[in-house]
Design a protein around this nucleic acid. Structure first.
Length: 494
RNA sequence: GCCGCGUUCGUCUAGGGGUUUAGGACGCCGCCCUUUCACGGCGGUAGCACGGGUUCGAAUCCCGUACGCGGUACCA
């Protein structure tokens, strides 16, 4: 249908899917789904040297994990495939040739060494950014400067060549960006971009224009790093006589220390960089999605929490912000905690069980489902149920320094008194309320506050200075375990 | 260097000439709840980069400066 929305997420399989890439995918997805459109996945694997095995699978897995269903892609092709550029190789050449025939592109035979020399030469003569452009191309080896017969001969002899876009000398290229408004560039600042590489593969610039047209893409939503090359793309649409899709360039995700959030920076600042990391660290996908949606976009009201489905309804390109957005890890954690608390023990159990197994624990389902509600209000990530809750399964081996400091001179005496009181309790009477009453009895008898009993007790039971509500915890642990841990603590801490 | 894009609390942002003593969220701080750890509730902290215009009036429009970011490949 003419006029229908079709967007594409077009990552290059050169590594694991970056968190910034995931956000680009998300904005494309939200825009598509909010406009009854189609979300296309296209793999841009034209750089054979940088291809990474398994990267495509990682992209698919990541999108799926985040809840984004691909309408058309390598795994579920529509009728404009194939969806991997390497499989479309033959299509690009004819378009590049078309441009040559029309006089909008030309063959160039310069070797990489010759290009380097040209750049060196220009740099030495004071040009800091040498370009293969309307001026320099006249002194290079290409079909514009060489005699026609020589060009023919080189082509026939199979000499390596590239096809370059013939950028006009003086022309203003203006286009409207959906997030930034009108943007214009002077063609003299552009270089004669290589369209077809000597290995026969197209560059990104050719491939994305040809594919977006052939795949009937209505809106190109991509990162701001592409803004500068958009005029070249606009030129090509013009030469092909195609109507360009609408363009939308998203602000970059920045590192807290400034600059594009790169792998290196993110890691040194403790921010996971790949979607895979978030999956492995057991983040709630809803949290990451919600967080990412708000990183560079906002609905304009005061709301903060929205599901993927709601975001689809609310999203619009004109509410995307223009400035770069710093990745706020703490806010992500806040989102994660929020979504965790919304989930029931039944929902959480299978995941907790899996994580427990990774930690060599094999929790009983009923037992764990009693622990989960006790801890839900204080975990940041689902794996905390296992790590922070480890004492539910085994006696603390040592006591956290900070926790041990809460152990005072009279702690042993107070806990001894407590043990005496609970020792006589029947199994049936060993429940939270009674256990709490017994604490009260101790503090009254010794005329101390709640803390002096509670804190050492918590330390003895869990080895930590914080954690779930204590008496229900003790109830769950049972009499034998509780007394044993108290006795151990008295022994160890004096 | 050149080209382009940007700049509202520490961070994400609302606000697009008078409704603003610039709103919300995260963080941080305090109080309440809780005779424990939290959750939660309430409150506080903190911002229109700077300089010129335009206007009765500018965070909002224009110009300049500064700063930041991106691009400047036979990478995407």
């Amino acid at each position: 249908m003419e006029g229908s929305v079709r967007v594409r997420f077009a990552p290059s399989p050169t590594g694991l899917l970056h968190i910034g890439g995931l956000r680009t995918a998300l904005y494309n997805y939200l825009f598509a789904k909010g406009n009854d459109g189609t979300f296309v996945l296209r793999i841009e694997d034209t750089d054979q040297a940088r291809y990474v095995e398994g990267a495509e699978e990682d992209i698919q897995r990541s999108l799926k994990w985040a809840g984004m269903d691909v309408d058309e892609g390598p795994e579920n092709p529509g009728d404009v495939g194939p969806y991997r550029q390497s499989e479309r190789k033959d299509m690009y050449e004819q378009y590049a040739e078309q441009l040559v025939e029309q006089g909008n592109a030309y063959y160039a035979f310069d070797t990489p060494e010759e290009l380097d020399q040209m750049r060196e030469r220009l740099k030495k003569s004071g040009n800091p950014s040498p370009k293969y452009d309307a001026i320099t191309r006249m002194s290079m080896k290409n079909s514009l400067t060489l005699p026609e017969e020589e060009v023919e001969r080189k082509l026939e002899e199979g000499e390596e060549y590239v096809i370059r876009l013939k950028v006009p000398r003086r022309e203003t290229i203006r286009f409207e960006d959906e997030v930034r408004g009108f943007v214009s560039f002077e063609s003299k600042g552009l270089d004669d971009q290589v369209l077809l590489k000597s290995d026969g593969m197209p560059t990104y610039h050719l491939a994305n224009v040809v594919d977006d047209h052939l795949m009937k893409i209505s809106h190109v939503i991509r990162g701001e790093e592409w803004l500068s090359s958009t005029p070249k793309h606009i030129l090509m649409y013009e030469y092909f006589g195609w109507e360009p899709p609408k363009m939308a360039h998203l602000p970059l995700i920045m590192s807290p220390s400034g600059g594009k959030l790169s792998k290196r920076k993110a890691e040194s600042e403790g921010i996971p960089i790949n979607t895979k990391d978030y999956i492995e660290q057991k983040f709630e996908p809803e949290a990451l999605v919600n967080f990412l949606a708000y990183l560079g976009w906002s609905p304009g009201d005061d709301s903060e929490i929205h599901s993927l489905g709601e975001l689809c309804e609310m999203f619009s390109l004109d509410r995307v912000s223009k400035g770069g957005a710093v990745f706020d890890y703490k806010k992500l954690i806040w989102y994660n905690e929020h979504y965790l608390r919304e989930k029931s023990a039944d929902e959480l159990w299978p995941r907790v069980q899996e994580i427990a197994k990774e930690h060599d624990l094999d929790p009983d389902e009923e037992y764990m489902k009693q622990i989960i509600p006790l801890m839900k209000e204080r975990v940041s990530k689902v794996e905390d149920f296992v790590t922070m809750g480890r004492f539910f399964f085994e006696d603390p081996e040592e006591y956290e320094d900070k926790a041990a400091k809460k152990w005072n001179d009279d702690s042993a005496e107070l806990l001894e008194a407590y043990v005496e009181k609970i020792e006589d309790l029947d199994e049936g009477a060993f429940e939270a309320k009674t256990l709490k009453d017994k604490i009260k009895e101790v503090i009254e008898e010794y005329d101390v506050g709640f803390g002096p009993v509670m804190m050492p007790l918590r330390v003895a039971i869990s080895g930590m200075g914080y954690g779930p509500d204590l008496t229900p915890t003790i109830e769950l642990l049972g009499k034998e375990t509780t007394i044993r841990r108290i006795e151990t603590a008295i022994e160890k801490l004096g």
